[in-house]
Computed example of a mutant assay.
Amino acid sequence: MAADPPSPEPDSLTANASDSLIEAKRLVLMGQIGADVGHELNNLFGKIIGLAEMTLDQVADRPDACAELETLIGVTEQGARIVERLEACCGWTVAEPRQFDLAAVAEAARAAAEARRPDLSYPADRPAPPCKVVADEALVRVALDAVLENAPRWGARRIEVSCRSIPPGEDGPGAEVIVRDDGAGMTPEVLARAFEPFFTTRPPGEGMGVGLTLAKYAVAACRGRIEAESPAGGGTAVRLFLPAAEGRPSEVKR
């Protein structure tokens, strides 16, 4: 009788984290971003309606003004109902943590980026020691893909990916991936808003401004954090930190 094939390593899904799973996680995060934006829009709608209703009392003797204000209130309430329906379709993103080697996932993301953009340089780092973390591997891959796809927009021609373990006492225990590019960098004003939903410096039609926001939500769902720095001399470095210890599954909340 033929022997059963060996089981995959329990702490590594790198080869088995399917494209469909990664895409599903990405779409769920996009829905969450939309829900958060919808929540903010409804706050604005409420203020518009409140101000319009107050103004109605002040112009009660002017039928034309009252009609225009009532139309404004009706249209705004309709917009609020649409946003509420969209919010209802977007649930929270719950992470499914497990232990895996962050260095292996970072290398897989680097190789995929190199395949997508052969015109750019993605030098392979020397093999890193295993960097064990406990997180949702598919969400981490979503975050890394988003950061790597964002890097060339600042004129980068060389994008480096490195990984290191963080010992206890230095923010750790955990591990971090650093994506560093040689582009023009970001101004302090742009850097301050880099993770905002739908913030972009691209011309209309060339981007929605959700790449780094997607990375932020994915990392937050894994109980990690993401930071960006862009020194005056140029270049940008994005750091993704993930914990080594398992905790309660996290949610990106509105």
Rank of each mutant, 00 (worst) to 15 (best):
A2S: 03
A3I: 02
A3G: 04
P5E: 06
P6L: 08
D11T: 15
D11M: 13
T14L: 09
A15N: 05
A15Y: 03
A15D: 09
N16P: 10
S18C: 00
S18N: 01
D19V: 14
L21Q: 08
I22H: 06
I22C: 01
E23A: 15
L27R: 14
L27C: 10
L29E: 09
L29G: 13
G31V: 07
Q32L: 13
Q32S: 12
Q32D: 11
I33L: 14
G34E: 12
A35E: 03
A35G: 06
V37A: 11
V37H: 09
G38M: 00
H39V: 09
H39G: 11
E40I: 09
L41C: 05
L41M: 12
N42W: 05
N42T: 07
N43G: 11
N43H: 13
G50P: 04
A52G: 02
M54I: 12
T55S: 10
Q58F: 13
V59T: 00
A60N: 02
P63R: 01
D64W: 08
D64G: 05
E68G: 07
L69Y: 02
L72F: 04
G74Y: 00
T76F: 04
T76D: 03
T76Q: 05
E77Y: 06
V83E: 05
E84A: 14
R85C: 03
A88E: 05
C89F: 12
C90D: 04
W92P: 12
W92C: 09
T93G: 10
T93D: 08
A95I: 00
E96N: 11
E96R: 15
R98C: 14
Q99I: 10
F100Q: 02
L102D: 00
A106D: 04
A109I: 06
R110H: 03
A113M: 12
E114A: 15
E114K: 15
A115K: 14
S121Y: 11
A124P: 05
D125W: 09
D125I: 07
P130N: 13
C131E: 04
K132I: 13
K132F: 14
K132V: 13
V134W: 09
A135F: 01
V140P: 04
A146F: 12
V147Y: 08
L148N: 13
N150S: 14
P152H: 05
W154Q: 14
A156V: 00
R157W: 08
R157Y: 07
R158D: 09
I159M: 04
P168E: 10
G169Q: 07
G169Y: 07
E170D: 13
D171Q: 12
V177S: 01
V177Y: 00
G185I: 01
M186K: 11
M186A: 12
M186S: 09
M186P: 08
T187Q: 01
T187R: 02
T187A: 05
E189D: 15
V190M: 10
A192W: 11
A194T: 11
A194Q: 11
F198C: 13
F199L: 06
G205R: 06
E206M: 14
V210P: 08
V210A: 13
G211A: 15
L212E: 03
T213R: 02
K216R: 15
A218I: 00
A218P: 00
A218Y: 00
A220G: 09
A221W: 01
P231F: 00
A232N: 07
G234A: 05
G235E: 03
T236I: 04
V238M: 10
V238A: 08
L240R: 00
P243T: 00
A244M: 12
E251G: 08
K253I: 13
R254W: 15
